[in-house]
Structures are given as structure tokens and as C-alpha cells.
Nucleic acid binder design. Structure first.
Length: 220
DNA sequence: AATGATAACAACCGCCTGTGT
DNA sequence: TACACAGGCGGTTGTTATCAT
């Protein structure tokens, strides 16, 4: 096991590892602000950092990059993460694109700390979903959960491809309820939806305890 | 006040993919 | 077409902070 002490010491051979010092941060920030992102291997050398290109990139992306939000995720952001994780699974970088200012690492860590401990309850969550689906089928309705997933997929897909005019009326309505914003790292042509406010007004159609309960109810 | 448990965060590792030659 | 390399991504681990007992 590596220790802090070992990390803190410069490597005899190869790159330095471990926590970044303020001096290293400044070197990296100054260099990137002058020369831009990319060519991380040469950044490492040119900036006078004894760090690997990978390490420099990671430090920049997760910590030094302008526009990063610090602090706790808002309930709205939590909602987005839950939604998008349900759609895409552990595609952290993809999910992060919809949360400007948040990094994939941050979201990954968040998910891990908040959901690993709740894995036990997820089975119950699945059972509850099953119950609702059965109830919906008995009532002859379109399954809310599937419909919900489908609509969000549709909105996000069309938003990303820029074909918002091809959305169905219902999708358009949902889109209206989403707050759109341009991701800082995104190219100018794409508009990423960000569900900041009232994360899912349409989620009223899904029982709260389905959306949140199975995942968050620790008492289970 | 001491100690253990847990959460939050930072960073590394290995694999995969895209790109240039 | 094949190879090498850089960058990106997801998984994992380690450290620190905070809370409960």
C-alpha cells in the first residue's frame, strides 16, 4: 500500500505521484491558460512539472479547470444523475455533460458514496417498479416508467442532435420544462439540456417513492 | 476526550479508442 | 494495413474530514 509519505516524495525515477502542491497547480494553470488544453505530455515537460501527461490532464479537468462548481450537489443535480444513470448506466462522462461545472469523477464519487450503501434497497426498488408495472398493465395504461424513460431519451437525443423540431408534442412540452444551457466544454453547435429547476415536473406522473424512495430510503 | 465508522474527495491504474505515420 | 502514441474513461484505492458512540 502506498502511503502519504511515499506519495509526497519525488519519484527517484519517472513521474512524481500523489497530491498536487499549490506550486504545481499554479504552474499547470499558468501553462494551460497561456497555451490551451491538449498535448498533455508536452504540458508536463514544458510547464516544468515532473508529472505525467495523464496526471496533468486529470488535475486540470477535475480541479483547476475554470467554471467548476465546488460543494454539494443540489437536489436538482441529484435528480439528473439518477435519471441519466437509469438511462445510461455508468457513463459518467456522458452524464457529466449534462451537469455543467461537475466532473465525471465527482459524479462517480457521488454515486458511489450515495448508492453503494443503498444497493440492498435497490432490490426492493426493483420489486416496487415491478408492482407498478403490473398495476399499470392491469389498468391497461401505458407503463409510466417506460414511457417516462422513453420521453426523456427522446428529449435528450433530439436536443443533442439539434433536431428539436422533430420531437413529438409531448416531448416538446417536456423540453419546455427543462432549462437548457450550453455546456462550457461543448462545441458551439450543440445545446445540452440541463434540468436545473423542477427537475422533473413530469415526474409527478411517477410516484415519488418510485423515483426516489427505493434509492434514498435508508430506513429500508 | 478517544475511538471507530462512514462520507467525501483526490488521485492512480489499466484498458480502450482515435489519430497520425 | 499495421503500429505507436496520446488522450479519455471507468474502476479502484488511499487520505482526510466529520459524525456517532
Amino acid at each position: 500500500m502506498q502511503t502519504m509519505m511515499a506519495w509526497g516524495m519525488p519519484e527517484q525515477q519517472g513521474w512524481r505521484k500523489g497530491p498536487w502542491t499549490p506550486e504545481e497547480d499554479k504552474l499547470l494553470s499558468d501553462y494551460v491558460s497561456l497555451h490551451g488544453e491538449g498535448r498533455w505530455s508536452s504540458v508536463a515537460r514544458s510547464a516544468g512539472l515532473n508529472r505525467s501527461g495523464k496526471s496533468c490532464r486529470l488535475r486540470w479537468v477535475n480541479y483547476l479547470r475554470p467554471g467548476l462548481k465546488r460543494g454539494q450537489l443540489t437536489p436538482q443535480e441529484e435528480g439528473i444523475i439518477i435519471e441519466l444513470h437509469a438511462l445510461w448506466g455508468n457513463k459518467w462522462s456522458t452524464i457529466a455533460r449534462y451537469l455543467p461545472g461537475r466532473t465525471d469523477n465527482e459524479i462517480k464519487n457521488y454515486w458511489r458514496t450515495h448508492f453503494k450503501k443503498k444497493e440492498k434497497s435497490s432490490r426492493k426498488h426493483e420489486q416496487r417498479k415491478q408492482q407498478i408495472r403490473q398495476r399499470e398493465e392491469q389498468q391497461g395504461e401505458q407503463p409510466v416508467l417506460e414511457h417516462h424513460d422513453h420521453m426523456i431519451r427522446s428529449v435528450l437525443f433530439h436536443a443533442e442532435t439539434g433536431n428539436t423540431e422533430k420531437m413529438t408534442a409531448e416531448a416538446q412540452e417536456i423540453r419546455q420544462q427543462m432549462v437548457f444551457s450550453t455546456h462550457p466544454t461543448n462545441s458551439e453547435n450543440h445545446c445540452f439540456p440541463v434540468v436545473y429547476q423542477d427537475v422533473a415536473p413530469w415526474s409527478d406522473t411517477v410516484a415519488d417513492d418510485v423515483l426516489w424512495g427505493g434509492l434514498w430510503d435508508l430506513d429500508d
